[in-house]
């Protein structure tokens, strides 16, 4: 088996006595587009920052390309792309100047790709970055993180401030990267319809715990909401994600009858998300 691009092993992290991540295990392999789904404050950003070595876990380990994430070599750093939630850092620059400086740090920068994206997102290279809107800054940050076709791309709420058309086009670029360059992509979002379209895999995080991490289609096919009158119904054959007095969310359902159940319903990703936090 190939070595995963990014690998979390039993990662725990707390901040000011609050447990943010609790025993997270997650592997990102080439070609995967993993959507990290969770409420605000569930620990998504902390999880991503651990992958970049910005934070170090108290327990467990995070490895990127087989190296510890906080001791990455320069070569491996040029193979990671990252876009933070708040994009800034090139205040005072014009777009062209900022790209020229950024480009100079990456030997494999693809200028054709850069220009294609600049034209497509209608960014004028002579505009000062201070004058850009939040959405435009985000597109610029995406260009800066993707123009060297990183092997591992980490995006924190990447499309939140893009308009729907830019979002669609950006998704196409993500697929190109994942399939043509065999990269792994990990992105956090709480826009379930975007995740549904883009992701090949889903990692669902709640209160710092990774509830599910699997192929999106598999999750959609085998997650069910079971309603019942008697809460003593036997669900031991499945992984129970959430249990309420009269219903439960189960994972691993393959079409059997469940004795004592009133209804077994499939859930869309959004419904699943809402039910889990109900």
């Amino acid at each position: 088996m190939t070595q995963p691009l990014l690998s979390y092993k039993n990662v725990c992290k707390s901040y000011q006595q609050r447990q943010i991540l609790n025993n997270v295990n997650l592997d990102i392999e080439p070609g995967m587009v993993v959507g990290l789904l969770g409420k605000n404050g569930a620990g998504k950003t902390t999880l991503l920052r651990n992958a970049l070595g910005l934070l170090t876990p108290e327990q467990g380990s995070v490895h990127v390309f087989g190296e510890k994430s906080n001791e990455l070599s320069a070569h491996n750093k040029t193979r990671i792309g990252y876009v933070a939630q708040q994009t800034f850092g090139y205040e005072g620059f014009k777009i062209a100047d900022a790209l020229a400086l950024h480009r100079s740090f990456y030997p494999d920068w693809d200028e054709v790709l850069e220009n294609k994206w600049l034209t497509r997102f209608e960014l004028n290279p002579t505009t000062a970055i201070n004058d850009l809107s939040i959405g435009q800054r985000q597109t610029l940050a995406l260009i800066m993180a993707m123009a060297y076709r990183p092997k591992l791309l980490i995006l924190d709420e990447p499309v939140a401030s893009l308009d729907p058309i830019a979002r669609r086009e950006f998704m196409g670029d993500l697929f190109d990267l994942a399939l043509d360059s065999d990269s792994g992509i990990l992105f956090s979002s709480h826009i379930t319809s975007d995740i549904e379209r883009v992701a090949s895999h889903i990692a669902l995080i709640k209160d710092g715990e990774l509830l599910i991490m699997d192929e999106l289609d598999l999750i959609r096919d085998t997650v069910r909401k079971v309603s019942f009158a008697d809460s003593r119904v036997d669900l031991s054959a499945y992984k129970v994600l959430n249990k309420q007095p009269n219903s439960a969310i189960i994972y691993g359902y393959t079409g059997q009858d469940i004795a004592g159940s009133i209804a077994i319903n499939a859930l869309s990703l959004e419904q699943l998300f809402v039910e889990l936090h109900g």
Partner: peptide, 12 residues
Amino acid sequence: QATEWQVLVPDY
């Protein structure tokens, strides 16, 4: 210190 991506850009 305020820029998250700074550590990821070698030599920046």
